[in-house]
Design a binder for these strands. Structure first.
Length: 601
RNA sequence: GGGGUCGUAGUUCAGUUGGUUAGAAUGCCGGCCUGUCACGCCGGAGGUCGCGAGUUCGAGUCUCGUCGGCCCCGCCA
């Protein structure tokens, strides 16, 4: 009853979850793991599991005493093979199982392997601590839901490859071990034994290499590839992650958008049967910040922001000195209306204040609109002038019973806090509809970000991003006002792709470097090879990189990246199964000419 | 670097004001049972209360530290 005969001679004929009424009468060979066994004395029922699902096998003592005795010993998670005839369950159909119309009458059983009792049940319903799941990831990966996630991801990979091949893209590879360049995300470093004291960096992205492919004439490149960033982890951030990376020559922004719309559209259609619009709507960065305080707005619900800066300016001495002060200092004032219908209580509003403070706010201004448009439950109620109050009511559209939340101060902080509050209330008030997909391009990003402390500019995307043609002259006069030919793809409030048109004109590139304060020596040291390549005949080119993990997460309905990555790291970047990273021996370090000086415990 | 939260049986959790032998469900082991599919019934085993100090006559419970999981801010060109 045990051995390997089913493997060497009989071979598997079907996968468990695929059997249906049409197979009735056939003798089948199935193999898998024991999900559950139900021993009724004279009959043993076993639900056998493989990646396609479950099928019930019955071992009947009345039919075959010996096989029943063998099946009687089987336990959960044992790996077995079964030969038997598919038969109807008659009146005992289980409508909850896709295979519930049929069962296999076991005629032969082979036990490939016994199993220890698993530390947690292999079941989607079991709410096991993440720590336990990750330390026994090979068991966690047996759970049907995560298997379905990874099977969907496999299909998505296939769809991406097929779509891009159809569009004449070449799948080309780039190195993981690359030159270290400062700026941007922290790099993981790899010591070079052959070059003592020198290090490679693990690639943050294939960015420079894919541009070099364009300069080499490959015209259209793509790759589904790992990227590495040594930054802190989040629910939607892992230190190694997968990008759908592509680049195309003789292309402008719209060409990249069309390709990506096709790729994402096919992923939705073939992955989960959802049709997205052929073209995705566009929104400018400025509009996104103004209306939502975020460059990745979730358009599935309202609670839009209203900028009141101009309203405050138009009502000098309006009785809200804090608002006026913020405006006078170059800041902004924003409001958000929570309609009366949501019945947000005073206590609930009070609870928002610590939330706002948690993301940097000094406080949370609020007012409840009473009959006739007056304000109550508000620190501003007594001082605000009738004129300013009415103007704010009008600008925000706030009506009787509505609650208005305010923030004022530096624009960046106001946006951050109001965005946080909007997302928080969206969840709290159940405003986010299920099964809805809000996708859009966010375009016209600033080319540079200004650093207040050092009064310098940094590349908002990366230093090879092309400014809009009409902004090229401003590179030297007013860098802060330059807009980039850069774009992000946003789905339900998640950034799922980002890219840009690249600079192919060495003169423009020089101006950008100047604006960034990167000296010619520094340019050579960091990007010499790319500048050389630009000088040898670079085609106009543009590209984008999509976050495969995040896209998979959204399409599977998972709430964490860890549910679509087979072997993820914890928040501290550890692999609980292998316990990586670990110390290494002094001898290994010596060989690499490295000294390690971890802080003492 | 900072904030929040959690850690008790294999698992998920409960555990009162600090007070007898730390409980439940499920899983596991044994027995019975031929139509179960959350099978049922009977019986049994199973605990460094994350770890270390401290307070106390007495700590799962209070204090401090530490380790780890998760969420967030900073960070992620």
């Amino acid at each position: 009853m045990s051995g390997q005969k089913l493997i060497t001679e009989r071979k598997r004929t079907h996968r468990c979850g695929t059997l249906r009424a049409e197979h009735i009468g056939q003798e089948v060979v199935v193999m898998g793991w024991v999900q559950t066994y139900r021993d009724l004395g004279g009959a043993v029922f076993i639900d056998l599991r493989d990646r396609t699902g479950l099928v019930q096998v019955v071992f009947d003592a009345g039919v075959d005493e010996a096989i029943h005795a063998a099946a009687d010993k089987v336990r959960n998670e044992w790996v077995i093979g079964v030969v038997g005839k598919v038969r109807s369950r008659g009146t005992n159909v289980n409508s909850k199982m896709p295979t519930g119309e049929i069962e296999i009458l076991g005629a032969e059983i082979e036990i490939f392997n016994k199993a220890e009792t698993p530390p947690f049940a292999i079941d989607d319903d079991v709410d096991t601590a993440e720590e336990k799941r990750l330390s026994h990831r090979y068991l966690d990966l047996r759970r049907p839901k995560i298997q379905q996630n990874l099977m969907l991801r496999s299909r998505l990979n296939h769809v991406v490859r097929r779509t891009l091949h159809e569009l004449d893209f070449l799948e080309l590879e780039t190195p993981f071990m690359v030159k270290y360049t400062p700026g941007g995300a922290r790099n993981f470093l790899v010591p070079s034994r052959l070059n003592p004291g020198n290090f490679y960096a693990l690639a943050e992205s294939p960015q420079l290499y894919k541009q070099l492919f364009m300069m080499a004439g490959f015209d259209r490149y793509f790759q589904i590839t790992k990227c590495f960033r040594d930054e802190d982890l989040r629910q939607d951030r892992q230190p190694e992650f997968t990008q759908i990376d592509l680049e195309m020559s003789f292309a402008d922004m719209d060409d990249v958008h069309q390709v990506m719309e096709k790729v994402i559209g096919n992923m939705f259609q073939e992955g989960i049967g959802v049709s997205l619009p052929a073209k995705f709507p566009k929104m400018s960065y400025d509009e996104a910040m103004r209306r939502f305080g975020s460059d990745k707005p979730d358009l599935r619900f309202g609670l839009e922001h209203v900028v009141l800066t101009e309203v405050v300016k138009a009502h000098p001495n309006g009785g809200l000195p804090l608002f006026e002060q913020a405006v006078a200092q170059g800041g902004m004032v924003k409001a958000m209306v929570v309609p009366a219908a949501h019945q947000l209580s005073r206590t609930e509003v009070d609870k928002l204040e610590p939330e706002a403070k948690g993301v940097g706010a000094l406080g949370l201004g609020r007012a409840k609109i009473a009959e006739g448009g007056s304000w109550t439950q508000s620190p501003f109620a007594k001082t605000v002038s009738d004129g300013l109050r009415q103007a704010i009511n009008e600008a925000t559209g706030a009506k009787d019973g509505d609650i208005v939340l305010f923030q004022f101060g530096p624009a960046k902080l106001v946006h951050t806090v109001m965005n946080h509050l909007r997302l928080l209330l969206g969840k709290k008030l159940n405003l986010i509809p299920a099964n809805q997909w809000a996708i859009l391009w966010v375009v016209e990003f600033p080319l540079f970000e200004h650093d207040e402390k050092t009064n310098t500019y940094a590349a908002a995307h990366h230093p090879f991003t092309s400014p809009r043609p009409e902004d090229v002259d401003r590179l030297t006069t007013d860098p802060g006002a330059c807009r980039a030919k850069a774009y992000d793809l946003v789905l339900n409030g998640n950034e799922i792709a980002g890219g840009s048109v690249r600079i192919h004109d060495p003169n423009v590139q020089q101006k950008v470097f100047q604006a960034l304060g990167i000296s010619p020596e520094e340019q050579r040291a960091k990007f010499g090879f790319l500048l050389d390549a630009l000088a040898y005949g670079a085609p106009p080119h543009a590209g984008i990189a999509g976050g495969m993990d995040r896209i998979s997460m959204l399409l599977t309905g998972a709430t964490s990246l860890r549910d679509v990555i087979p072997f993820p790291k914890t928040q501290r970047g550890q692999d609980l199964m292998t316990s990586a990273p670990t110390p290494v021996s002094d001898r290994q370090l010596e060989e690499l000419f490295i000294k390690s000086t971890p802080p003492k415990a």
